[in-house]
Structures are given as structure tokens and as C-alpha cells.
Design a protein around this nucleic acid. Structure first.
Lengths: 267, 267
DNA sequence: TGTTGACTCTCCTCTTAGGTCAGACTATAT
DNA sequence: ATATAGTCTGACCTAAGAGGAGAGTCAACA
């Protein structure tokens, strides 16, 4: 039997952590002295602790770990690990984009001496949005579900014998945009008007072109909105974005292009 | 002047966030109505907010951001950005190692059907540690400072005309190992006994070979310690590790090899 | 037997960056 | 005058422990 201090040294975790794990029921000591409350661990529990630490490194929360160590079904466990792997991979990619952004920012800053240059480069203009016929799906969704919904749209292309124009986008119906869940309509432009789910009429818009990954897209939105306010317009409908150049053109995020449209009218 | 709701939509942050930033003094509204307490923001503050969001994406804490937006010195700002970039890069590398580990774990699990196989493969043996003469530096340091301290050691090699044996390691004097700061002695083996800072005498040790990156090294330590307890030995000195195959052999982390030694005596 | 020092216990507060109510005002349109 | 939407403050909550206070416990030593 090991005292908590010995056990903590062996497993390279703090005594505090062991207290915590005991309290949340993740790893209870093999024995607790009734009188003194002293915790005693068995050497066999070292393996369990290492396993917990390993899952923690993989990025699972303690709650998930608590569940995982009780799972005996191989398939379930394997799929949980694979899901986590995919999550980590996606996060790695996102962070790679941010790192890239930071690198560019640094070099722009060193060249220009202005920390704001990098983000103030939006040119907002008044433009009539293109008229489009489109297949569309509207739902409450988060940004990380876009791919899934676009999948269902693109599946319909061959089935319904329509001809994509290559112009795709998303329209945001919620006033308040939320990354995890918003009322969004995704659409892909097609030639055939009679087969379209929706027809997006041309309208007067304030538009800005955003170059780069989507993590900074909100700055484009901000730029357009403040332009609208400053130039005596007002918003006249749900904003939308058109994906001009994307990952599907096998470009790096830095070269993606997105047009941000806000329908407006003169006040 | 913008109400808090409008400002929040433009900047794509929640009203709560704006409350929070106001309270901690990171971004105060341009005006607050004395009577109603309503907050009003100016369009110019959008840029500031975008800048804050950008720094947040770069991984700075709000406290750091609060400091950074007051800094007017270009050099200081640039060096803060560069430091952050290096930090992000290092974290990316660490996560890449973990991702790799997880991938291996998954494939081992699918092959063997045993989730523990991957971590129980340590063979502990009793062995006399090699006698070594070494240049050494002992200090309170965290694991991420190892590189720095090793640098100072290797600089001395040509200066003091010593001949490295290629056998390097680290000895942990604290009972309780701590990732951020421990009393550690780093050493590089050399041939010349008279020029050595320390002579590590051969002694009876329990030893295990760890294959892979350093993030799982603690499992090797755990394995050795529990072996010692189970096999009727007791610890007789500070443990140390020898780096047999490392990144300097231009190997991937999966192929690194580290020997973990615990001086022991029979009870 | 008494004492010292190391170890452990429980309980409390603190951390980040906000989220989630509740209850009370306030602004604007009808 | 009222309905609805927006806003205010304040209190409590999150995850995974860290830090400390004050008290009890264990083993060794004099």
C-alpha cells in the first residue's frame, strides 16, 4: 500500500490532483483509513493512473475519461479515440492558420511600423449583388457543420441534374451571429431557375472582399457594418457571403477570397 | 454612437463579453449614461475591438492584451509577438507528437484489442549504471529550459578542449518531480576525468528503456518505481535519465530512446 | 515519554473568459 | 397606455486543479 505522497511521485501528479480525482470519483484510493482519513493506493492503480494521464494528454476532459475507463465495448472506445484524433487534427489545422496569420502580421508590422495596417485593408463598395438561382438548405447550425450541410447539397447536383455555377455562399438570418449555432442558409448557385430552391434577387449591397482564412472573417463584417453607419446607409436584409476562392480550388487559406454582402438602402 | 447590442453584432462578440471587458478595464465604452447606466460605443472603437480579438486569437490572455494595447514601443511589441509566435510553434510541435502517439495507440489497439498494451511494454532490469565523467550544470529549471542549459554546456566543449562521449543525461534531485521547475543536473559525458565537473560513479540501478517522445517519459518512471516496490528493492539516490537516441540523431520522436535509472538497494 | 519534522486531512478561496439566470429599468413603436 | 425588445446590476457557475489555513497523524530521535 502506498501513501498518497509516494503514489503522487510515482505517477508524477500532485497530491492535489489525487484529492481532486478522489472527490469527483475518477480514481478512488484502494483504501481509506476510517479514523484518520488517510488515503492508501495499491501499486496496480499506477497503470490506471497512467492511462488517465494518457487520455488527458489526448485532450479528453476528466468527465469523458471517467466515461471512457468504464467502457468495455471495443468499437465504442475505438470510435471515441478516432473522433478525438480528428478533433486534434482539425485544431492543429486551425492553429496552423493562426500561426501563419501571426507570422504575416509580424512581417507587415516590421515593414510598416503600424500594427493596425494588417487589418484595415478592406475596401467597401456599393454594388448590386448577383442574381442567383440556388439549391439551398436552411437550418440552425454551427460553423463547423457547414461541411456536412454542403455535402448534402452537392449530393443533390447529379441526382437532380442541375448545373452548378460555381458560386456558393451562406446567408445569416440571425441578427446576432453565433459561431456555435446560428440560423444559416447555405446555397450553391445553379443555372436552372425552375429547379432552384431559392432565387436570390439582385439588390443594392455594401460589399467587401475578404482575403484569407475564415477566422478573421468577422473583421470584414465589422468593416462593412461600420462603413454602412459612417456613410449614411442602413441595413435592409440578412447579410450573406459568397465563397469566391476556397480550399476547393486547392489554395492555401491565405489565398481564399470571400465576398461579404450587406443589403442596404440610403437613409 | 452605438448601443451595446449593435456594437456586439458588428464585432461578433457577445454583450456579456463587452460587459466583461468594461469591468476589467480592457475596453470601456466611449460614453455611459449617468442615469441609466447604458453603454454607448463609437464606431472608431470597432478597430480596437478587432485588434483585441486578433490578439486573443494569437493566444494572448486578456491581461497580456491589456498591456500590449498600451505599449507604444515598436521593439517591445514586435518582440512580444515573436515570443508568442515561438510559443505557438512549440505548442504545435508538442501537439503533433501527441497526435502521432494517439494514432499509434489507435492502430495498436485495433490490432491487439487491448487498450493497455501500448503503455505496459517496459522491461525493468537491474544493471550497473555506466561510470561517467561529465560536464554538468545544476539548477532549478523547467523542462522547457533544458535546451538553453544544454547550450551552455556544449559551448564549453571546444573551449575546454574536452571530448564528448555522446552520452548525455539529466539527474533529478527533487523527490517530487515538477514539470515547470525542479532541481535538475544536466550533464554531458566526456573522456577527460581531470576536466570533468562531476564523476558519476557506477551503482546498482533499476533501469528501463523508454522509446518515444518525452511526454510519456513519466510512465517509464512509474513503471520503474512500481517494479522497485514489487521486487523488494528500495531507492538509494536521485534518479537520472540518459539520452541514447534523440532528435540530434535526426530521428522522429517515436524513435528516440531514453534510459531511466533509479539507484536501488535490496531491502 | 516527549518532541520534532514530515506528511496528510478537510475546508476555503482563487484562477480564465466569460455564460446563465433573475429581477428591475429603459427605449421605441403602436 | 401598453407591448416588446433592449439593457442594467448582481449572484452564481464552469474545468482542473493551485494555494493556504488550521488541525490531526506518523515515525524517528532524545
Amino acid at each position: 500500500m502506498l501513501q498518497i505522497g509516494e503514489f503522487s511521485k510515482i505517477c508524477q501528479v500532485s497530491v492535489k490532483t489525487l484529492h481532486h480525482y478522489d472527490r469527483i470519483g475518477l480514481l478512488a484510493p484502494a483504501e481509506v483509513d476510517r479514523l484518520t482519513g488517510y488515503r492508501y493506493y495499491r501499486a496496480e492503480q499506477i497503470d490506471r493512473m497512467n492511462y488517465i494521464q494518457r487520455l488527458k494528454r489526448y485532450g479528453f476532459s476528466l468527465e469523458e475519461i471517467q466515461y471512457l475507463i468504464t467502457v468495455s465495448d471495443h468499437k465504442e472506445l475505438a470510435s471515441a479515440l478516432r473522433r478525438q484524433k480528428d478533433r486534434l487534427k482539425r485544431e492543429q489545422q486551425e492553429r496552423a492558420v493562426i500561426l501563419n496569420e501571426l507570422q504575416t502580421h509580424i512581417s507587415v508590422f516590421e515593414r510598416t511600423g503600424d500594427i493596425m495596417t494588417y487589418q484595415k485593408s478592406y475596401t467597401v463598395e456599393i454594388k448590386n449583388s448577383p442574381k442567383m438561382n440556388a439549391l439551398a438548405v436552411r437550418a440552425q447550425m454551427g460553423v463547423d457543420e457547414f461541411g456536412k450541410y454542403y455535402g448534402t447539397l452537392f449530393e443533390r447536383v447529379p441526382k437532380e441534374r442541375v448545373t452548378p455555377t460555381g458560386l456558393n455562399g451562406a446567408k445569416y438570418y440571425d441578427e446576432e451571429f453565433n459561431h456555435e449555432s446560428s440560423d444559416v442558409e447555405l446555397f450553391i448557385g445553379i443555372k436552372e431557375k425552375d429547379k432552384a430552391d431559392v432565387v436570390l434577387e439582385s439588390c443594392e449591397c455594401a460589399m467587401a472582399l475578404h482575403r484569407g482564412g475564415y477566422s478573421t472573417l468577422s473583421e470584414a463584417y465589422g468593416a462593412v457594418v461600420s462603413w454602412i453607419i459612417e456613410n449614411g446607409y442602413e441595413m435592409a436584409g440578412a447579410p450573406f457571403e459568397l465563397y469566391i476562392k476556397t480550399q476547393f480550388d486547392s489554395l492555401a487559406p491565405d489565398d481564399w477570397e470571400t465576398e461579404v454582402y450587406f443589403p442596404v438602402r440610403k437613409k
